[in-house]
Nucleic acid binder design. Structure first.
Ligand code: FES
Ligand code: FES
Lengths: 146, 146
DNA sequence: TACATACCGGACAAATTTGTCCTTTAATTT
DNA sequence: AAATTAAAGGACAAATTTGTCCGGTATGTA
């Protein structure tokens, strides 16, 4: 569905959001441990998100990553996905035709469209803050324990 | 969404199905030209589908690929996808957790499940034959012309 | 049987994604 | 100011996906 980079990016954002909601800024090491992701790779992805202004970062001692109250309220899953994976999966043809369009649709087009639209809607309507509070309430997990 | 290999595999199967419905057996070169895919790579993918018995092949002169009437009737999109991409995308967690389960669900789990289920249902209920006739009737395309 | 055709299979190559390492830059603390 | 902390950035490495090439194998035809 999403790339590994995107999965890590989403999980990281949610974890950062969860901690930010409690006024805690978190470091890379902490993040990677809490979402079970490779540390250095996660750093690269967070850089992208910071550049895209979907996550904030502070250097130096007591620095780390955080979500501003505004980011917590407004940044959607969709923005994270687009920043990392681009729009291909959200707009592209299921069968890989260069254009998804009703002009020359692939044989799955009309069946596929409503599902893709629901996915778009899902990503568009869920903010990081919302997902973070779900994790906070123990209704969702960012890694699994055995 | 799907891998390139899977996209080519689906398009190829549908094209083969369309021709088989008319009693025509088709060669690799023809297929690659009609679905706009790299020839040698498409060959590899077709090998997989033949081994999985989702497509039939005949060697030698006047040989090529075809779908038996039974295959045309029973092979689903889902079988093609599983044969090439495996079941990860049809069962895996949206955020990449090692297990998708209500036991320790990711924060998107309950929103994501219905969409994934619809996708599964879509793939499960569409046969290659059905899609092939759609193409045959000009209601769907396997490549695009500019 | 010899030959031509077309899929099969393995090895190889390119491109992309995933992941690591190390130096630089910025901020805080002593 | 110096030392320490932590993210930023670049170069590099491994793994996977995508794609090519070529000899082998089966099949039909002359
Ligand atoms: S053309 Fe294939 S999904 Fe729209
Ligand atoms: S646990 Fe993530 S989708 Fe089910």
């Amino acid at each position: 569905m999403f790339s590994k980079a995107c999965e890590y990016g989403i999980r990281a954002s949610i974890y950062i959001g969860q901690q930010s909601a409690n006024g805690r800024r978190v470091g890379l090491k902490d993040i990677a441990a809490e979402i079970d992701s490779p540390e250095a790779f996660t750093a690269k992805i967070l850089q992208q998100l910071v550049r895209a202004q979907l996550v904030a970062s502070v250097k130096g001692p007591a620095g780390g990553f955080e979500l501003t109250p505004e980011q917590l309220r407004t940044v959607t899953l969709r923005q994270i996905v687009v920043a990392i994976d681009g729009g291909a999966m959200l707009q592209g043809c299921a069968l890989g035709l260069p254009q998804c369009s009703a002009k020359q649709p692939c044989p799955m087009h009309y069946q596929f469209l409503p599902i893709r639209d629901q996915l778009n809607e899902l990503l568009r309507t869920h903010t990081i803050g919302e997902l973070a509070s779900k994790v906070h309430e123990g209704l969702g997990f960012l890694k699994q324990f055995s």
